[in-house]
Design a protein around this nucleic acid. Structure first.
Lengths: 335, 335
DNA sequence: AACGTGTGCTCAAACGCTTGAGCAGGTCGT
DNA sequence: ACGACCTGCTCAAGCGTTTGAGCACACGTT
């Protein structure tokens, strides 16, 4: 790793000259000849500006942290792809941090920002932490954007059109003739779960269908909790002809449990999940889903945190381009 | 973000005193009283040592980069968990970089290390790049460890006991009475695929069973390629009673295609895959797998890169603790 | 009284980079 | 012929840390 002064020495000029040439400053005022010598020297020594030195000088690292509840979630990879692509285009890098519970989140965020390792944080909250707690932790002191959870506060957010997604799922099922439709949701404390439930209820109401609370569970987004939801609905002695599941992962578990209980999908039970992932098309039966713009969610989040950092703007965004779209596979059928 | 001199001012001492106290240097020689004042001041100002300044001083960032072919792979999350846990314990952070093809790998590694952003890189190679190419890129100049691919060269590696894993799968199937056993492998250029095939062949030989090349495909590790493998074996007019699939993801696709072709798993075809993941237990039928120590692979990789950085040691490690273990679910049955 | 020896601090340089200020020499206008 | 101005550079400070060297004072010894 060669430094500016190595290059300066080789080119026979001062470090300032080299710095100005290599970062082609507007007011460089360097002759063509020296410019050439400097560029040659830099190339010969394979010069790369030292990251730490620039970070120290500018109090800017061009790194943002992405904090996620778990890596297992099939949704994460698509989201992350969006974040990374946008970051790359804007000259940023992404530091990934996993945080299972709230305490590590508080600790990591404090360290990351306190030490000046990152310029800002992107936080994808899961079931594990409420938005209120989170906001309390951040207290608006650190540039942060919350993904998938809204918070009209001193911290920005970017979310998906969850109501619309849920509505699409209901419309599909109703179109197939279903009327006894269940809803398998995430934890009721989760912001996105709340919005999806609102969307579900609104869509049902629009069709003049009642929401039977015995067909509604709020156990969580994971496969295991999807299984539990199926078991719970069964235990209540209920037989919906179709269910909207708020998350692909939960839907996978739910289908498994349905089968274990002798119920065929879609013959006995139609299943449509919100969020699409590669696991959906490789499930059996291949899962009908509502594809949400996760990639764009990632991109938009990155844009939003940079806005926050550069301009101080705090915004709450809903990413609805492209619109949520129904992906019909084999897990839904006519009644 | 307060600095050392802020603390020094508040405590009424010099920055050096503060530095020595807060990094509790062995030769501090500070009175109890000033030590107390300094610590109080630091707490009051919520002082955190600036990362960039330390990095500049020590030419060390305590960050390592993890480069992966794609985030979608269910295997990745377990591996990453191991890497992160080990990193956290050792005071390191992980910078995640995705790299679809070779060129970005070369570019990112060069930048990351050249700019001194990271102290070393962990590279999980996929089907997309050969180990030879990779080694050429690195040329031993950057501290790197390759995961899942061996390379007895100027670059370290840490891999899994792939032969043993494949053997376990074969033993399970033979124990169930199968004799016409197929092998659905990753691309033949992939190092791990080669080892798994060696293990498969050796195990078959140990049982006195022939390896019928018409039952062997080498199409890739992805679900899509698993589907293609099933189709290909069918096209060859072959009917194995069981297959060993070199990767869970491919196995999922293969089961889907088998069903599409009217073959029941496990009644008509037993399927066992190498690598366990949450997708395996949520598949239908739940997939029998050979669980490999992926978490430990991650941990060991982190340990290995730090060895490389600190001591310069270049090692080639096989992670076999815990041993590969058969996880019997519902995709395999007696003939 | 002079001297060594701790003790408890401070000084200042260095890590690699950026950037406002300054300086020598040439060119131009009057 | 003399100031004004441009051109092409260099100087030096500063970002926040660490750390060897140094300094003032107190204490115990001869």
């Amino acid at each position: 790793m060669s430094t500016l002064s190595d290059v300066a020495e080789l080119a026979g000029v001062s470090v300032s000259a080299v710095s100005r040439v290599l970062s082609n400053a507007p007011s460089s005022r360097v002759s063509g000849a020296t410019r050439q010598r400097i560029e040659d020297a830099a190339r010969e020594l394979d010069y790369h500006p030292n990251f730490a030195a620039r970070a120290l000088k500018f109090a800017r690292t061009n790194v943002i942290a992405m904090i996620v509840p778990d890596l297992t979630n099939a949704i994460f990879s698509e989201l992350m792809r969006g974040v990374e692509d946008a970051a790359a285009e804007l000259g940023y890098m992404v530091l990934l941090a996993r945080a299972e519970s709230m305490r590590p989140i508080a600790a990591s965020v404090a360290r990351l920002v306190g030490e000046g390792r990152v310029d800002g944080v992107l936080i994808q909250v899961g079931d594990n932490i409420s938005t209120d707690e989170l906001a309390a932790i951040l207290e608006g002191r650190v540039p942060a954007v919350i993904i998938n959870s809204r918070r009209d506060d001193h911290v920005g957010s970017v979310i998906l059109p969850d109501e619309a997604g849920a509505r699409l799922a209901v419309e599909h099922l109703v179109g197939l003739g279903h009327r006894r439709i269940g809803f398998v949701n995430g934890l009721p404390t989760t912001d996105s779960a709340q919005r999806r439930e609102v969307g579900f209820a609104a869509a049902m109401a629009a069709f003049g269908l009642p929401v039977d609370q015995r067909l509604v569970t709020r156990l969580g987004y994971d496969p295991r909790q999807g299984r539990a939801a199926m078991a719970e609905i069964d235990r209540r002695g209920q037989r919906p002809t179709a269910v909207v599941v708020a998350n692909v992962n939960a839907a996978l578990g739910l289908m498994l449990e349905a089968r274990a209980r002798g119920r065929e999908v879609p013959a006995d039970l139609s299943v449509v999940a919100i969020h699409d992932a590669w696991t959906a098309e490789n499930a059996w039966p291949p899962l009908t889903t509502v594809r949400m713009p996760l990639y764009e969610l990632g991109r938009r989040s990155m844009a939003s945190i940079l806005e926050r950092i550069d301009a101080g703007t705090i915004e709450d965004v809903v990413v609805s381009d492209p619109q949520p779209a129904l992906v019909v596979r084999k897990s839904t059928g006519p009644i």
